[in-house]
Amino acid sequence: MKLLVVDDSAVIRKVIKAAADVLQLETIEAEDGIEALEKVAAHHAGIDLILLDWNMPEMNGYDVLVEIKTNDKYKHIPVMMVTTEGQQSSIVAAVRAGADNYLVKPFTVEELETKIVECLGKAGGF
């Protein structure tokens, strides 16, 4: 199974990749919203879950989420927001836009692994 990890922080991408390795999941990475949409277009058939940061240069994660969830080709892909934006209003906005799960930074590795398994489980992967 394959995760698309979208975050402008290389360290956060490493943290997520380490968790994915433990769960024996493949990862592909993007460091901003534009690159994320390019990766989705190129690999959408093989992506099982997108982990999406909110505050990023070029195009923010919320706009990426809206693009994905309003596109018939991509909207089936589960998206988990992984962000410092922890206010209720942000969570509600993301869920309304179609986010399937939400994880506020910082997180422990255990929390991250649990959320990934939960998302993939709902999608029928685990």
Partner: peptide, 27 residues
């Protein structure tokens, strides 16, 4: 990142500090 200090690059150090600032402000 759960890796030995010898594997932490200069870029990682600056990136991690930025992320600490980001998470502190968000929290």
């Amino acid at each position: 990142i759960g890796a030995p200090e010898s594997e932490v690059t200069e870029a990682d150090i600056e990136d991690a500090l930025c992320e600490f600032v980001n998470m502190t402000a968000g929290n």
